[in-house]
Computed example of a mutant assay.
Amino acid sequence: MTDTHADEPHGAGLSQKLNWLRAGVLGANDGIVSVASLVVGVAGASTDSAALLIAGLAGLVGGAISMALGEYVSVSSQRDTERALIHKEREELRSMPDEELDELTQLYRQRGLSAETARTVAVELTEHDALAAHLEVELGIDQDDLVNPWHAAISSAISFTIGALLPLLAILLPPPELRVPVTFVAVLIALAITGVVSAKIGGASPVRASLRLVLGGALALVATWLIGTLLGTTGVV
């Protein structure tokens, strides 16, 4: 008999996997858009390959570090909050176990169990692992699957770098007259792909997610190219 639930995301480590996948997709998307906007803006003002390379590399390095630091701080704050909640729940179980058992019973009643069944479930789970039962039902936390800030930071930095390399190569490799069009096409295709991937991770509509990213990326590229062209024409650059 085929297991209809084989593809569903069960088991320990799900939070960790979704955490680094989310950071990776966001990092790649940011790398593509930010560096593409930067080099297209410079390309609108100058055809100097050295200037494009310097601008692109500066954006890549600075952006990767910024993304990694932002993810580390954000996920660290989330993990600190989860740890504080676990400590608080552990202390409550130690100091007032009867009240916590009543609370767990009530939570299961709110989920649709009868009073007798809810009490039985609460007692059996409390005997097995009281802390895990309360964390799962009250807070939706798995103490063995807390988010890892290092995973998020490393995933974000690597994916940002990979994403940033695409517009950097697209702007440097073609002849000057084709640099901007080639970069536009490459970036928009890459954004469409990251939109599909992010939608698959989040269970959303791939078309809608891709369209948002493509339109946003196109707007950013056009805006920076126009600014670069205007500054280059007026001789500011």
Rank of each mutant, 00 (worst) to 15 (best):
Y108A: 03
G41Q: 05
V236H: 12
L93R: 05
I171V: 15
I32A: 06
H10S: 11
V236G: 01
I201L: 15
N19D: 14
A23E: 00
P181C: 11
E99K: 04
I65F: 15
A157H: 05
L18D: 01
A204E: 13
A190F: 13
T126F: 12
A223P: 01
A220S: 15
I54P: 02
V33S: 00
T105M: 00
S159T: 14
D145E: 06
L18M: 14
E91T: 13
L53T: 13
D98L: 15
D145M: 01
L146V: 08
A115F: 07
I154W: 00
D129K: 10
G11T: 00
L165V: 04
K17T: 00
I154Y: 02
I189C: 07
V185T: 13
V187C: 12
T4R: 13
W150P: 01
M96Q: 14
A190L: 11
S15G: 04
Y72M: 00
V121I: 14
A164M: 09
P175L: 13
A170G: 07
L113V: 02
G140F: 10
E99W: 00
L125I: 05
I65V: 15
R111Y: 09
D98C: 04
L188G: 00
G203A: 11
M1P: 06
A68D: 03
L60I: 06
R22E: 03
A84T: 12
P175E: 13
V42S: 03
L125S: 02
L146C: 08
A51C: 07
N19G: 01
T194R: 09
G202R: 07
V61E: 00
L188V: 05
L104G: 09
I227T: 15
P175T: 08
L166G: 04
I171S: 10
P149A: 06
G11L: 01
S49W: 09
G24K: 00
P176W: 05
E91R: 06
E82F: 03
E138A: 14
A12H: 14
E138C: 07
E92W: 11
Q110S: 07
S15M: 01
L18K: 05
A45K: 01
V214S: 03
D7P: 00
L69P: 04
